[in-house]
Simulated scan of single mutants.
Amino acid sequence: MQEWLEVLLRTLCAAVVLFLLTKLLGKRQVSQLSFFEYLTGITIGSIAASLSLDLEANWYLGLIALAVWVAFSLLIELLQIKSKRLRDFIDFKATTVIKEGKVLEGNLKKERLTSDELMEQLRKKSIFDLADVEFAIMESSGEVNVMLVSEKQPLTPKHLGLQPGSIKEPHEVIMDGEVMEEPLRLSGKSAAWLKRELNKNNVKQEEVYLAQVDTSGELKLDLYDDQISLPQVRQKAALFANLKKCEADLEMFGISAPTKESKELYTNTANRLNQLLAEIKPLLQQKKK
């Protein structure tokens, strides 16, 4: 066999085996490598390269080496699942680097992290003032996760005493002009409903690049032809209805509020929302021209 043909066959074989073994190792091997997985990836790649080009070596020995490394990696992962000590030993332990706005210099030195690198990590999270940080923890991956002090944390429905309903998962029901049967079923919609929605928008299935049933159960369309404009009236009407519902909920909470302060807060917020709705009502309820 000619050398170029042998190299071609060995490379194809190594690529297929490497792909299958990578799939076997799972998504975490690709999305975020631990310290040991990083070493495993380098070694497996080196073996695969040698398998492709080293014509003097037996190809099956390279496959055996690949299989041994993957099996060893899987064994380590299984042991990590069962043992916290082994996880800490292999992947390192999380380390607190900021506590109550104060940098823990000893822990920084332990993790070999400079103050410049720490501030860079904070700036990536739009944090420029150390006093805004309650805790900052360096994870085993090297990423720094931050918890802000309470007054700097974003406002949530829980802070207002609200209990919003659960959000449904969006589903892509058409891709590249083809209906996706399983996502359509999971969205709780039928093929007949999908056809009616397409007809309402005067769109054919094969004209749709991507169609998604969003969290509110509405069908959102993206067409191959970007010059075609789709009506937005139903979306605007739904937004207006949701805002009106929020206003009614705030008024109801104001009536049942246990204290005078919370009653005034709910009432004032409802009044401000009512003023906002009066201003944007012409935009949200405008007719399609």
Rank of each mutant, 00 (worst) to 15 (best):
L5N: 01
A15N: 03
V16W: 05
L18V: 08
F19I: 13
L21F: 12
K23G: 11
L25D: 01
L25Q: 03
K27S: 12
Q29P: 13
Q29I: 14
V30R: 02
Q32E: 09
F35K: 07
F35D: 01
T40D: 03
T43A: 13
I44L: 15
G45P: 00
A48Y: 07
A48C: 04
A49W: 06
S50W: 04
S50I: 13
L51W: 03
L53S: 09
L55Y: 13
N58G: 04
Y60S: 10
A65H: 08
A65Y: 08
A67H: 02
W69M: 10
W69P: 00
V70W: 04
L75V: 14
E77G: 07
E77Q: 11
R85Q: 14
L86C: 01
D88W: 06
F92T: 15
T95N: 02
V97H: 04
V97S: 07
I98D: 02
G101D: 02
K102G: 01
K102D: 00
V103W: 07
L104Q: 07
N107A: 05
L108A: 10
K109C: 06
T114A: 13
E117G: 02
L118A: 05
Q121R: 11
E134G: 05
E134L: 15
A136E: 00
I137T: 11
S140R: 09
E143S: 10
E143H: 06
E143N: 07
V144G: 06
V144P: 04
N145E: 10
N145A: 11
V146Q: 04
L148V: 11
L148S: 10
L148N: 09
E151T: 14
E151D: 12
L160V: 02
L160I: 05
L162M: 13
L162T: 10
L162E: 15
Q163H: 07
Q163S: 10
Q163A: 11
Q163E: 08
S166Y: 12
I167D: 08
I167K: 11
P170R: 14
P170D: 13
V173E: 08
E181T: 09
E181F: 06
E181C: 01
E182Y: 12
L184K: 13
S187R: 10
S187W: 09
A192N: 04
W193T: 01
L194G: 00
E197T: 00
K200A: 08
N202W: 08
E206Q: 08
Y209P: 01
L210C: 05
D214N: 13
G217L: 11
L221N: 01
D226I: 15
P231M: 12
Q232Y: 02
Q235F: 11
K236P: 00
A238K: 14
N242R: 15
N242T: 12
L243S: 03
K245S: 10
K245Y: 08
E247D: 09
E247V: 03
A248Q: 14
D249C: 01
L250V: 02
L250Y: 05
E261Q: 05
E261P: 00
E261F: 08
K263R: 06
K263A: 13
K263C: 09
R272E: 15
Q275Y: 06
L277R: 09
L283C: 02
K289Y: 11
